[in-house]
Measured scan of single mutants.
Amino acid sequence: MIFPGATVRVTNVDDTYYRFEGLVQRVSDGKAAVLFENGNWDKLVTFRLSELEAVK
């Protein structure tokens, strides 16, 4: 189960963010908004829950 605050990895091989890890900001309607941070940039991207896996 994916909840806000969880760290997730993108599993969709066709996505630009494949294998990126980010922090879930919100979850609704089968989608999750994931925040990616890297140095001087932040990006908030929405994914279907089926495209994400929780990082242990």
Rank of each mutant, 00 (worst) to 15 (best):
D14R: 11
T11S: 07
I2V: 06
E53R: 06
D42H: 15
Q25P: 00
I2S: 01
V34I: 07
L49K: 03
K43T: 12
T16Q: 14
S28R: 10
V10L: 02
S50V: 08
A33Y: 14
T46E: 15
K31L: 13
R9P: 00
D42V: 15
R19T: 09
N38G: 11
K56R: 10
F47W: 01
W41I: 11
F20E: 07
R26N: 13
R48F: 15
Y17T: 02
V55I: 12
E37I: 13
A32R: 00
A54G: 07
L23D: 03
G22C: 03
R48C: 14
F36C: 03
P4G: 03
E51N: 05
V24P: 00
E51I: 05
F36M: 06
L35K: 08
V13F: 07
P4E: 08
W41T: 11
G30E: 06
S50R: 05
Y17A: 03
V55Q: 04
D42K: 15
N38Q: 11
G22Q: 01
K43G: 08
V34Y: 01
V24H: 00
R26M: 13
T46D: 12
R9F: 05
V55D: 02
G5C: 07
D42A: 15
V13Y: 07
L35Q: 07
K56P: 13
N40A: 12
F3W: 09
V8I: 05
G22W: 03
R48M: 14
G22H: 01
G39P: 07
N38F: 15
N40L: 12
L52W: 01
A33K: 07
N12H: 05
L35S: 06
R26I: 12
D15A: 11
M1F: 10
D29E: 10
S50H: 09
V55K: 04
F20R: 13
G39M: 10
R9W: 07
I2T: 02
W41M: 11
L52D: 00
Y17G: 02
P4K: 08
Y17S: 03
E37Q: 14
N12T: 07
L49W: 05
S28P: 01
D15P: 02
V10C: 06
F20H: 12
A32V: 10
T46K: 07
N38C: 15
Y18I: 02
F47L: 07
E37S: 14
L52P: 00
F20S: 08
P4I: 09
N12L: 08
G30T: 05
A6M: 14
R26F: 14
V13R: 12
E37C: 15
T7A: 08
G39N: 08
E21V: 15
T11V: 13
F3Y: 12
T16M: 14
W41Y: 10
V10F: 01
L52K: 00
R9N: 02
N38S: 11
F47M: 07
L44I: 12
S28G: 09
G5K: 03
N40S: 12
L44P: 06
W41E: 12
E53P: 01
R26T: 14
V10E: 00
K56G: 12
V45D: 03
T7R: 15
A32T: 01
L23F: 07
G30R: 04
T16W: 09
R48W: 15
F3V: 13
G22F: 03
F36G: 01
G39I: 09
V8M: 01
F47S: 03
T46P: 03
F3D: 04
E53C: 08
A6S: 10
Q25C: 14
S50P: 05
G39K: 08
V8T: 01
G22E: 01
E21C: 12
L49Q: 04
R26K: 11
M1L: 13
R9Q: 06
D42M: 15
N38L: 14
A6E: 07
N12Y: 04
Q25V: 15
K56E: 13
A32P: 01
N40C: 14
V27F: 03
G22P: 00
V10N: 01
V55S: 04
L44N: 04
M1R: 12
G30V: 03
F3G: 08
R9D: 01
D29W: 06
K43P: 05
S28D: 10
G5P: 01
A33S: 12
V34M: 01
N40H: 11
V34A: 00
A32D: 01
V27G: 00
I2L: 06
K56D: 13
F3L: 09
R19M: 15
E21M: 11
V55L: 07
G5L: 04
L44V: 13
A6H: 06
V27P: 00
V45S: 03
L23C: 11
V34G: 00
S28F: 15
T16I: 14
M1K: 11
E51G: 03
E53K: 06
W41D: 10
N40M: 11
F20V: 07
V34W: 02
L23A: 06
G39Q: 08
Y17Q: 03
V10Y: 00
G22M: 02
F47N: 03
D15L: 08
T7Y: 12
Q25R: 08
T16E: 14
A33V: 15
V24Y: 01
V24C: 05
K31Y: 15
L23H: 07
L44A: 06
G39W: 08
L44R: 04
T7H: 10
A33G: 05
V27R: 02
E51A: 06
D15V: 06
S50C: 11
V8P: 00
W41P: 13
G39V: 08
S28V: 10
G30P: 01
G30K: 04
D14H: 13
Q25S: 06
T16H: 12
G30H: 06
A32W: 02
V27N: 02
E51Q: 05
A33R: 07
V8K: 00
S50G: 07
T11C: 10
R19S: 12
L35R: 09
A54P: 12
V13H: 08
W41F: 12
I2Q: 01
E51D: 14
G30I: 03
T46Y: 14
D14C: 13
T16K: 14
V45P: 09
S28T: 10
K56W: 10
E21R: 07
N38A: 10
V34S: 02
V45K: 08
V10R: 01
V24R: 00
V27I: 10
N38H: 12
F3K: 10
F3T: 10
K31W: 14
L52A: 00
T11Q: 05
K43V: 14
V13M: 09
I2W: 04
E21Q: 10
T16D: 11
E37P: 10
R26Q: 12
L44K: 05
D15S: 15
F20N: 06
G5V: 01
T11Y: 03
N12A: 09
Y18V: 02
L23V: 15
E51Y: 06
T16S: 11
G30C: 07
L23M: 10
T46R: 06
A54S: 08
V13K: 14
V10T: 02
F3S: 08
G5T: 02
T11M: 09
R19I: 03
T16F: 14
M1W: 10
N38E: 11
D29L: 07
N12V: 07
T7M: 13
R9A: 04
S28Y: 14
E53D: 05
W41R: 08
R9V: 09
I2G: 01
E37F: 12
D42N: 15
V34F: 01
K43E: 12
G22V: 03
V55T: 07
G39D: 10
T7G: 04
K43D: 09
L49V: 10
L23Y: 07
L35M: 08
T11W: 04
D14N: 13
A6Y: 08
N12G: 05
V27C: 06
F36T: 00
P4A: 08
V27A: 03
K56M: 13
V45R: 09
L52F: 01
L44F: 06
D15N: 15
D42Q: 15
D29K: 08
D29Y: 07
A54L: 15
R19N: 15
F3I: 11
V13A: 11
G22N: 00
A32K: 00
A54D: 05
